[in-house]
Design a protein around this nucleic acid. Structure first.
Length: 450
RNA sequence: GUGGGCGUAGCUCAGUUGGUUAGAGCGCUAGGUUGUGGCCCUGGAGGUCGGGGGUUCAAAUCCCCUCGCUCACCCCA
């Protein structure tokens, strides 16, 4: 009857959003488990904040470029609210609101953020971020700990060939000062340098010489030479630090930035972070306005999906809410990490967590099936008991499509003999297992698989 | 905001001088096999050809407008 009627509302997704079906969620949860484990192992505590904030809490923090990308909400009488753009600004608000929190305050937070961008490959309007931050200390130990934690997580996930690029905002500013670049061109120059990966030295040089308006008003040839020479200095800290120091001379901010970086790198070595996992990279800028000290960004060079993590020190951000506090943190791009792992074939496709489906062979055996299911579940075996009275064909089809590896059959014969017939769907092998051995039997097999 | 590509079944797509009732594969569903899935065979359901207007005896096909998706730039996870 009404089957014939078409639904009036077309099911569709809002631009830039997607559904995470079980096959997407299962690997994501695995990644999340690793992140959570590492975070708590290092003393980071969980935090959640609302998705919606007052608009003025968010504005003026990210810089004019990013500011357009804040998702604004209008509600009654022209009041304005917005969806959070990242997790760092909400944390800053929390720190300003609860001054009695013990310092240093270390927290991790996993929640979606929203950006009103035009979506494209690997970029969405809603995506999940996982942030790790330490508030309340200016010590570089905090910066280094966060980098080490990032490396630990990525290493544990099997992403071996990642590189954490590290730079320092003060060093960058010192470089521009040393080159004699006027303050009003700093933002332009830094943004241009950030494009090195894409357009290369010559492209960057061209843009720099032309200036922000594209005509003249750019920097001089000599300045461009100096900048490109400096940004070419990328690699092991032991090699690069001294050269940069020579280049920047006595510039006060430069000296301070370099000494902070060298401290960070020392601590990383104490923490046994392999040298191959990080580099000093003079070309790293980071777009967000609120960074004040070390900045970092993690990439997997063999993949072209942008950065999978990024962060830095933001000592002045919390102060804008009235209560000063230094802070440093990183964002792990949960979704992108999963993509990276998929592309590197580090995730075996799993559609279900269920280990065995207990079939209801006939209505008479319903109680036996559910009793067995209960027993298995109490023993920690992930068990489904088929909920409907249906043909075995249908029940097997369900197991097959869902990806459940084992099927248990408990009919009159089995009940009488005190066994369960278990079929391995992948191998198409079937055996009778005594009821009391079933838990052990499954455990042994599931562990072998992984 | 600026450019390019694409909209035909749930999905991936065929469908050229405009011409009967718009097709395939996959998926879904029922059966072949009433204690057994994946393979195979047979049947079934499922389409205002993105939407609107125009040209024409006739439009998925040609023209105009519009909406949507997508990729790139910008910026970023």
């Amino acid at each position: 009857m009404s089957d014939k009627k078409k639904p009036r509302i077309q099911p569709r997704l809002f631009k830039g959003t997607r559904d995470s079906l079980p096959e997407d969620m299962i690997p994501r949860q695995r990644v999340l488990d690793v992140i959570r484990e590492h975070a708590e192992r290092c003393g980071f505590a969980p935090l959640m904040t609302p998705s919606i904030e007052h608009l003025d809490v968010l504005t003026g923090k990210y810089g004019s470029e990013a500011e357009h990308l804040i998702f604004r909400l209008a509600y009654k009488d022209g009041n304005t609210a917005a969806l959070r753009y990242d997790l760092t600004v909400p944390l800053s608000r929390v720190m300003a609101m609860y001054p009695s929190l013990p310092k240093p305050f270390k927290r991790y937070q996993v929640q979606p953020v929203w950006r009103a961008e035009k979506p494209q490959k690997g970029r969405y309007r809603e995506f999940v971020q996982c942030d790790l931050d330490t508030v309340g200390t200016t010590e570089m130990t905090a910066d280094a700990e966060i980098l080490a934690l990032t490396a630990g997580v990525l290493g544990d996930l099997g992403l071996e060939r990642f590189v954490m690029r590290v730079n320092h905002r003060m060093v960058l500013d010192a470089l521009l000062d040393t080159a004699g670049i006027p303050k009003n061109l700093h933002v332009f120059v830094i943004r241009t340098i950030d494009k090195l990966d894409k357009v290369g030295d010559s492209g960057v040089r061209e843009i720099l010489l032309k200036g922000p308006s594209g005509g003249d008003g750019g920097i001089t040839e000599d300045q461009a030479d100096l900048l490109l020479k400096a940004t070419g200095l990328t690699g092991s800290p032991a090699d690069v630090l001294p050269e940069v120091r020579r280049m920047l001379g006595d510039h006060e901010g430069g000296v301070r930035g370099l000494s902070e970086l060298s401290e960070v790198f020392s601590i990383l070595s104490w923490l046994d972070v392999p040298e191959a996992c990080y580099s000093f990279d003079m070309s790293l800028a980071r777009g967000l306005d609120y960074y004040t000290g070390p900045v970092f960004e993690t990439v997997v060079p063999e993949l072209s999906l942008g950065s999978i993590a990024g962060g830095g020190r933001y000592d002045d951000l919390i102060g804008r809410f009235g209560k000063d506090a230094p802070a440093v943190g990183t964002t792990l791009g949960l979704d992108r990490i999963v993509v990276a792992m998929q592309e590197l074939k580090l995730i075996q496709e799993t559609k279900t967590a269920t280990e065995i489906l207990v079939c209801v062979v006939s209505p008479d055996q319903k109680s036996d099936a559910f009793k067995l299911g209960g027993l298995l579940r109490r023993s920690g075996v992930r068990t489904e008991v088929f909920l409907e009275s249906a043909s075995l064909k249908k029940q097997f089809t369900y197991a097959n499509k869902t990806g459940i590896p084992y099927v248990g059959l408990l009919g009159a014969d089995e009940v009488e003999k005190g066994v369960v017939t278990v079929k391995d769907l992948a191998k198409s092998e079937q055996t009778e297992v005594p009821r009391e051995n079933l838990v052990h039997w499954i455990r042994a097999r599931m562990e072998k698989v992984g």
